[in-house]
Design a binder for these strands. Sequence first.
DNA 1: ATTAGTTTTGTGGATTTCCACAAAATCATG
DNA 2: CATGATTTTGTGGAAATCCACAAAACTAAT
Lengths: 408, 408
Amino acid sequence: MNPFATHFDSLEEFADRVSEVLQCPITIEDANHRLIAYSTHEHYTDPARTATIINRRVPEKVINSLWREGVIPKLLSNREPIRVEMISEVGLGNRIAISIWKNKEVLGFIWAIEMEQTWTEEQFELLKQAAKAAKNLLLQLQIRKHKKEERIQEFFWKLLTGHFSSHNDIIQQCHVLNIPVYPFSSVVIFHFKQEIQPQVERQIDYLLKTTQQLAVPLYTIDHHRLTLLAAPKSNANAQADIKRFLRSFIAQMNERFRIEITDGAFGSIYECYTKIEKSYKEAQTVLNMKRAFPHDLGNVQSYQELGMYQFFDLLLEKKRDGDFYNETLEKLKQYDNRHHASLVKTIETFLDHDSNVNETAKALNIHPNTLAYRLKRIAEIGEIDLHDMNQKVKLYIDVKLAKYETSH
Amino acid sequence: MNPFATHFDSLEEFADRVSEVLQCPITIEDANHRLIAYSTHEHYTDPARTATIINRRVPEKVINSLWREGVIPKLLSNREPIRVEMISEVGLGNRIAISIWKNKEVLGFIWAIEMEQTWTEEQFELLKQAAKAAKNLLLQLQIRKHKKEERIQEFFWKLLTGHFSSHNDIIQQCHVLNIPVYPFSSVVIFHFKQEIQPQVERQIDYLLKTTQQLAVPLYTIDHHRLTLLAAPKSNANAQADIKRFLRSFIAQMNERFRIEITDGAFGSIYECYTKIEKSYKEAQTVLNMKRAFPHDLGNVQSYQELGMYQFFDLLLEKKRDGDFYNETLEKLKQYDNRHHASLVKTIETFLDHDSNVNETAKALNIHPNTLAYRLKRIAEIGEIDLHDMNQKVKLYIDVKLAKYETSH
DNA sequence: ATTAGTTTTGTGGATTTCCACAAAATCATG
DNA sequence: CATGATTTTGTGGAAATCCACAAAACTAAT
């Protein structure tokens, strides 16, 4: 006899019924640990549950603990209820949990708190039945969500490609689509090693929905790329917050799902939503430049950090028009060719290392005096004063620009 | 009785007649020391005269000597014949010279060599008569020249403004207009302190026609500016040759005529005549940048030396579009405003002096440790690594660009 | 192979730069 | 004007950079 084989008007009603049957507080989450429903009978409740109910989602540090303890991996691979030992650092009491399945996909979880008495075999059996019953209720939710999701996707692409010209129009649309609005935002792009498969999409969704480092009101997936709108909490260290998010997102995708992300980048942080297009372009520029200069821009992620490479596309265009002939560089190249030397490589490395002789010598595996000699020759042959910032800047840009041109 | 009161078919005939009458070699030059005619009777001839005849103009070093000795100034202010002592360093024998006048303008000169016998009063008188007779002959020459000059002016402006698209068309036009063609050329612009008056135009013409450091096939004058096409002799040190020309032209205008030239600049050196337009634009860019950055570009003359400022117009355009927001710079500016400090000035000077602490401290009149402290603060406040070339370059450009923007 | 010219590496000392610490001066603010 | 924070200047020693000189290695010709 199944106590859940009746019709429920809402998921709340269902949660209350499960709670009644099992005599303990019940929480139902979706696959991304968003709160879907919770029982309201008066029972003891642990701090983790309270926090979950208040924020309408499970706190990130709780999720992280559960991953570390192997609880969530077990739930994702196993249809049986499992007992979860107390994790007092994050306020989690003794729990019983079970995942809700549809075919091979996890739709959500039911969490129970194990009260004074240890659960009987019968109680475990009842929880399994509850999980089966929850499946249909969750499916209905999902269908409603999918329809909305499509409209949101289209809206996001319009934002990215600069389809709107008024900030207020955008805000209004957000309200209609129930997209939260934040004061500051930046476009983030991740480049994945493999093309992103539907299963990975769910994993991405999972991480984005569970992260609380910053808000991700919108995201979209396209081939190898995940593009999202990131809203840092404060403006003060927004830059740093986004960087931290990038790092942890890449790490978690790898640790939890063995998905490799080759690269991540983000554009400037803007207040006006019409600037999302610009931020998107900037993020793309960062990715392009990182591909062209993997060595130079290895740990650059933001458009700000891109420095002089910000305007390389502009310069390349002019260079293609035949401008920017650099006499010094041409003379050095010529010398390199005629005497198969490597003056250009030498000056590039020297400038890469902030004109520091020792560091450069190490990087080139040559004696510091050798470097000094070469620099003397470079100054002579290229007719350049290596203590003149303007000349050095021009030469540095031209060297890198020449590389950029051939890398295209 | 005037022995020159007859009709002469050519100036050569006239020169021979003067030579006959005075019993010595005669050379007639225009106001720019170009050879107009010379006598062919067999007499002793000094090396200076030989060289003049072969090159069809007086060698520059001879002209320079004559200026230094005060001979030419005297000829330009005085209608009497004068005796010129031998200047053996430049191969000049004992000479008698007189200027040819029309109203208040000197049209040219007659030079005689004083042979063994010292000239009599009568001979001086005959030379004066010859000078008067030469006037009409020279005037006819001038009229022919003026007409041609107008067509050449128009042609030069067309070249400067990119009116022609084929190199060969241009060369052909040059042949028609009798303009010599050179393998390499660059556009030079001089900016004069005062608007250029007709009298100064003649002085410019004089210097340009007499210089032999490089060829000046074309030039034009417009308000404060003299624009000319300079053809260096060799390609090897063309850059240096043009620089030398600039320096000496400015010096000579000042020394000889008390005319002040505020600035001079030149574009890249091109082979193809269609690139004259580009060289002209480049020279203009140099002048504009020098006006905006007098301190930074004090002794820059060529487009090559302009370095990174070459593309400032391009960058400014983008900056006006709202790109190139530099977080570091904004933070420093903000700090400067709030605490009326001078971090921006400090970092600018530091970068101006190639990141050299001691030099910068001297330039700012502060203790090196003060500078070190400020640099530490700059790194903290601007969140910049002052050993990262890329970041430094970006900051340097943005600092200068901000100045450029306000200077407009 | 020889040879002159160029490049690399090594050595040692003069000079400069860098840092840590501290005192003095200045500034902001109640 | 008292106070604490920030900035400037001073001192001295460790570390690094620079430079001159020379030997060795290498190259490109004859």
